[in-house]
Design a binder for these strands. Sequence first.
DNA 1: AAACTGACTTCTC
DNA 2: GGAGAAGCCAGTT
Length: 105
Amino acid sequence: MDITQNFSQKVKSLAKQIPKGKVATYGQIAKLAGSPGASRAVGIIMSKNNSPETMPCHRVVSSIGKLTGYAFGGIEKKKELLKNEGVTFKTDLLIDLQKSLWQFR
DNA sequence: AAACTGACTTCTC
DNA sequence: GGAGAAGCCAGTT
């Protein structure tokens, strides 16, 4: 059901739904997961479940497009992965949300 | 079960 | 625009 138990499950599913070359914010995912404002909770799930195969958390960034966290090799690794997918970066750790923010098209 | 922690967000100065 | 503080949600201990 739409309880906390499914929240983590939804976050994982949503992360996999993010199109390649795009990124989503924690707040956006939290909202889609059923809890607008649970941005922190989203990050927690990521950090505790470091499984890139089941949770491509490298496509999830902060509201300003800043790369945060990433427990699979560090921010640098995450940055390279996103750049490799075609994501536009304003700076080394800042993504250009104008072009790379995931918008349900 | 309660308390603390944490990969966030937003407001104010 | 940058720095600091408060608030919010779920997970972990």
